[in-house]
């Protein structure tokens, strides 16, 4: 039989569109066919890419709250049980070996455990060091932003404009510290982190026409400070939308924060 039938079947299988009998037969073939396996893998990636390139929508917040409660109450997650079982099995094996060759293998086993532990500690240390460096860089950026805001506030021409949450994030809050010739800084809070491949984009709107003012991400606590460049004349409204990560020239996504005119 040529492979052509399977090429059709793997496509239908990736779409979960095979009838039950045919599916069982195809699964038997799939188990030993690397060609179909890789076609299936790539098809699933392609279908996932179609889904992921679609616009995002933040789900109701109580879903996450319920999940986090379940996770917190999950005293014996699968991995713990697996680990215990594995350790137990290993214990039996070591004991059996010890009966045959005495304490020699037990010694090796303990040494291996120690080495593994040392390796783990070393990895942990280097991870912590990287974390610290990242935090320090973030802190410096933040201090520079604070300094810029203080400088702006010294100028009597500077205004502070409130932004209100809208659309998918009604509880989000924002302030724009704005100076017509010097530009400004926008501070946001309670925005959910943007999903993968997306970012928040700032807009200044004048005469009904939006002008892009840069993209930014929020930190894990939902906060961000973003600089709005000057040179855009009088602004009627400030707004923030959720957009594809590199930013877009004109808004396409939902407004998450906007100033009231």
């Amino acid at each position: 039989m040529s492979h052509e039938t399977f090429d059709d079947q793997v496509a239908a299988y990736a779409l979960d569109a095979l009838d039950a009998g045919e599916r069982a037969a195809f699964e038997a073939h799939l188990a030993g066919c690397t060609r179909c396996e890789s076609t299936l893998r790539e098809s699933r990636e392609a279908l996932a890419a179609v889904v992921l390139e679609g616009p995002a929508a933040v789900p109701p917040p109580d879903v996450k709250a319920a999940l986090m409660r379940r996770v917190a109450g999950d005293a014996t997650p699968v991995h713990r049980r697996t680990d215990t079982r594995r350790l137990w099995l290993r214990g039996v094996l070591v004991a059996a070996a010890a009966m045959v060759v005495g304490g020699f293998l037990t010694g090796m086993f303990v040494a291996a455990r120690y080495e593994a532990e040392l390796g783990r500690v070393a990895r942990e240390t280097s991870r912590l060091r990287e974390d610290l460096a990242r935090q320090e860089a973030a802190l410096q950026t933040r201090v520079a932003a604070y300094q810029a805001i203080v400088d702006l506030l010294r100028d009597p021409a500077t205004r502070v404009i409130a932004m209100r949450g809208a659309g998918p994030s009604p509880t989000a809050e924002g302030r724009v510290v704005w100076h017509e010739t010097a530009g400004g800084q926008v501070l946001v809070a309670k925005l959910p982190p943007a999903p993968a491949g997306k970012a928040y984009e700032m807009w200044t709107i004048a005469g009904g026409k939006p002008t892009a003012a840069g993209v930014f991400q929020v930190d894990e606590s939902g906060q961000a400070i973003h600089r709005v460049p000057p040179g855009r004349g009088p602004v009627d409204v400030f707004a923030i939308t959720l957009e594809p990560a590199p930013g877009v020239p004109a808004p396409t996504g939902p407004i998450v924060l906007a100033s009231t005119k």
Binding site: V51, G54, A56, L67, H79, P192, P193, A196
Partner: peptide, 25 residues
């Protein structure tokens, strides 16, 4: 997450749920 890190799960959820939710809906 496999190591039992709940924070990682929270971030995983934040990252993917807004992309998966429209599909389910």
């Amino acid at each position: 997450m496999a190591a039992g890190d709940g924070d990682a799960f929270a971030r995983f959820y934040d990252r993917y749920s807004p992309l998966v939710y429209p599909l389910i809906l």
